[in-house]
Nucleic acid binder design. Structure first.
Lengths: 344, 344
DNA sequence: CCTCCTTGGGAAAGCGCTTACCGAGACGGT
DNA sequence: ACCGTCTCGGTAAGCGCTTTCCCAAGGAGG
């Protein structure tokens, strides 16, 4: 990096000292620079296109305006919605967001939190379902603790069991509500495209759904619970698998919208036209998917708001921490799960 | 930030000097540290959970491993796809991505490039259609020039007229190909949901489409070209507007997929069932929307690859710059534009 | 036995900025 | 007229790290 203009240059050009130049430029607290000198400094800075070195400032000040954000995959609309919320709120507070995708690589989060720690990020936000991998969780917890010990603030989203402020999406209750709603529509025989068995988010949704059926009456045979990846292709494959088992089922719950869309495609490829041949429901209410046809019944999670909330939580000097903030989902019934005609 | 462990602490604990500790940790070039001392230093670092201060390193080395990425809206699947490509490639090169959303605020890009410049980012990538706002473009150009003058490398995506390496999506040719393909399917009377008139990307697509019709025969009345925002709701509104004009049209081209989906929703709300009542095509081939029903005819743009390419371009020490890299789109015909039965 | 090289550790000079501290001048109160 | 006080500019001490330069010790060659 050559040729960059430093504060020194500005000071020289304005004919003042470094201190005065610095004070003039960032209006240092409880120190006023005379109008004329300030004018001169600002002019010199503008003429030289001076741009302060953020690292030097970080060093001198001992902190930065960086938010570190770790998520699984920015191309996944679930995460990009959360990221949008984080960025919006960060922008409002003059913070810059540094983002890293784990691509679901185990241990990646720990690495990235380490990187954010090296950058003296003031805030770190970790979003994405924890797995049941105990060792990885412990390592991440340790790294986050080290980060907070150094004065940073961390917030976890969908990651319980971490020793920091946490935003917890109520998957269990949401799935339960969904199960009840589907039951009320007349459905009794269900299947579940369950997602990865090691992902807490997925298993919670399955558990909540199952509980609703148990409570209100409804059948969910073990062989109608098909695991698979949390993706569109995962939903597609799981649905095929399910159909191969030729199930006696009227409604399928895919544990997220992206999978539900894949599942619908699988149904069509088998000549089954949803929702006529099969009702289907998802989870998340991904904005981009609100116009699929038939409209997808789902549980709305305020993803963008969750991202914004994470930033606010980090910036808010709460008294006692870690805090846990629960966010509820809301069932949205659409055309993909029509009311079942009463059995004759 | 208190309590953070510094290299000094590590050196003291290992009983060596700062210099030796530094050399031991990053295997300094052409200087070897004795096996035993190195061992001691590494152990001390691990025991103390030492994490080097990235800013201090940046200062001392005069460069960073940061990629600055400016885009319009990370929640938009178009941008999140590009971002995913950038992050994948950045990760592969050990770079960290700092991202900023302009929310289409004019001038925001310039501000963000300034922020990246302050951070001594080694690479800056600016993605998103330039508008016809000449002044804003000039300012951005100037800021990018300053950034490169300081040794940084900038790449623009979809932003012609900037004095840096540019990846240019061939909107014109893509739309032209699409127009021809639709013509071959038998369509003759078209409408276009044109997006924002000041957005180059949108106008290029409209122009290419129009040119194909002119060349091969096909009608596109001026009042059947409806402008509007580049979003789902923009597509919805534009389609309503179009329907209100009661057009004699068999096929609508929405200049991006997100708008096309909104347009389909508008059709349905008016009791028109695509593609029966009206064929519809989009542009981009957004992955999340590949399963909408009916399948959306579109022009595939390799968005993720473009993001990755941008990073590679920045890292590649090209001889002569700025270079322009054109990326072509590919027409993908799906069910939303069925072949029109020949007129009897 | 002396000189010259090689090996490897340490001291210290920055990198660009902020900020405590210092000091000079102006001003008003007594 | 003197002193306390206030205003405002400058000096310099870091922030944590890298890297150049110096130097000591040991070995090889004459």
């Amino acid at each position: 990096m050559t040729g960059s203009v430093t504060l020194h240059d500005v000071a020289r050009r304005a004919g003042v000292s470094l201190a005065t130049a610095s004070r003039a430029l960032n209006g240092s607290a409880n120190r006023v620079v005379g109008e004329e000198l300030r004018e001169r400094v600002l002019r010199a800075a503008a003429e030289l296109r001076y741009s302060p070195n953020a690292h030097a400032q970080a060093m001198a000040r001992g902190r930065t305006n960086i938010v570190g954000l770790s998520l699984h995959d920015i191309a996944d609309p679930y995460f990009s919605a959360v990221a949008a919320g984080v960025m919006r709120e960060a922008e409002a507070h003059g913070l810059l967001v540094t983002m890293a995708s784990t691509e679901r690589r185990p241990g990646a989060e720990t690495d990235y939190v380490g990187a954010f720690r090296r950058h003296w990020a003031s805030v770190v936000i970790v979003v994405g379902s924890r797995t049941d991998d105990r060792a990885a969780t412990d390592q991440l917890a340790e790294e986050l603790a080290a980060f907070e010990a150094e004065g940073g603030r961390a917030v976890a989203v969908s990651q319980p069991r971490l020793p920091v402020d946490t935003i917890s999406i109520d998957n269990h209750a949401g799935a339960q509500d969904l199960g009840r709603a589907l039951h009320e529509l007349g459905h009794r025989r269900f299947a579940v495209l369950a997602g990865p068995t090691e992902l807490l988010t997925a298993t919670e949704r399955v558990a909540g759904f199952r509980e609703a059926l148990t409570r209100h009456g409804g059948r969910l045979d073990p062989e109608h619970v098909v695991p698979g990846p949390f993706t569109r292709d995962g939903g597609y494959a799981a649905m095929r698998e399910l159909l191969d088992r030729d199930p006696d089922v009227s409604c399928v719950f895919a544990v997220n919208d992206v999978m539900a869309v894949g599942a619908m495609a699988a149904l069509r490829d088998r000549g089954i036209d949803p929702p006529t041949g099969m009702a289907i429901a998802g989870f998340d209410d991904i904005a981009t998917l609100r116009d699929v046809n038939p409209g997808l019944t789902t549980v709305r999670i305020p993803l963008e708001e969750i991202g914004a909330l994470a930033v606010r939580l980090a910036l808010d000097d709460g008294v006692e921490r870690p805090r846990v903030h629960r966010v509820a989902g809301e069932v949205v019934l659409r055309a993909s799960t029509p009311r079942l005609p009463p059995p004759r």
